Amino acid sequence: MNKGKWFGFRFRIHILFWVVIGLAVLTGHFLEVLTLFVLVLIHEMGHVAIAKELGWTVSEVQLLPFGGVATMEEAYATDPLDEIVVSLAGPFVNVVMMGLSFLCWSTGIWTEEWARFFLVSNAIIAGFNLLPIWPLDGGRIVQAILCKCMPYRRAVLLSMGASTVMAGTMLGISIFEAQISLLLIAMYLLVVNIQGFVRFPYQFFRFLMEKYVRQPEEGEVQAISVQPEETVIQVSRKLRRGASHLVYVQGTGLLPEEKLLHALLFEQMHDTEVGQLV
């Protein structure tokens, strides 16, 4: 992969991108394929712009043969509503460009054929990214909504499980319909979600660590009621994204979230009963 660093984040181009460009040249569709990749890049920059406006750290933008991915450092413990806004920014940019194509056609700047190609391309990019499959924008939105309704661990595992099923279904359809491009996309999404399950223990640790670091910033406070015999690790699985918690240990008292996380992350008290921490 080609790597570079622009505007404070890494920019990577997958090697298969150049293969696609080469095939486009050979088949006489270079301008169309190049336009699609530029539109994907602009889509990703929409995410980057809003993420930076919210104070997030963008670590990488990767251009794939069939799309792009922007990686944000703060995508774990921040408010789920911020995640929804960032996820919608990319499709919103495509909608704006759809309006631009109509304007350029109506004023005679573009031909009807080119304006239609530009409009349809943006519609496909926006529509595809809004599919409810993680890590697409739609999948991130679904996961953020679930995080608003339930503990982080359960929300992520549920969304990834649903995404795996949908990616597998897409794979089956692509095989039945003999659609090579859809097959490659479905395989990529399926592999990414399987990797997500494998890496989730690390992701969950990142979530807990970010919550501990962000304690002074989180405004919303939620109460959790637990039994005194529940362990520190069991209670940590009930924590939600974008909020701090007061843990009410029944019959014992209140346990601040900071103390719970410190015991888990720095004192290795995973299996200690929370009743002993009050």
Rank of each mutant, 00 (worst) to 15 (best):
R140C: 10
R140Y: 12
I141Y: 09
I141R: 05
V142E: 11
Q143C: 13
A144W: 04
I145L: 15
L146T: 11
C147W: 13
C147R: 10
C149I: 12
M150G: 07
M150L: 03
M150C: 03
M150D: 05
P151E: 03
Y152W: 09
Y152D: 03
R154Q: 12
V156Q: 00
S159C: 14
A162Y: 08
A162N: 07
T164S: 13
M166G: 06
M166A: 15
M166H: 08
T169L: 14
T169S: 03
M170P: 12
M170Y: 02
I173H: 03
S174C: 12
I175P: 14
I175L: 13
I175R: 07
Q179H: 12
Q179N: 15
Q179D: 15
I180T: 07
I180D: 03
S181H: 09
L182M: 13
L183I: 01
L183Y: 12
L183S: 08
L184D: 02
I185P: 04
A186I: 06
A186G: 10
M187E: 05
M187K: 02
Y188Q: 06
Y188A: 13
L189N: 02
L189E: 07
L189A: 08
L189F: 11
N193M: 13
N193Y: 05
N193P: 05
I194K: 05
Q195W: 12
Q195V: 14
F197C: 04
V198G: 03
F200H: 11
F200I: 07
P201N: 09
Y202L: 06
F205L: 08
R206D: 00
F207V: 00
L208V: 04
L208R: 01
L208H: 01
Y212S: 08
R214Y: 04
Q215H: 01
P216Y: 01
E218H: 07
E220Q: 10
V221E: 11
Q222H: 13
Q222M: 15
A223T: 11
A223K: 08
A223G: 07
V226S: 10
V226K: 12
Q227F: 11
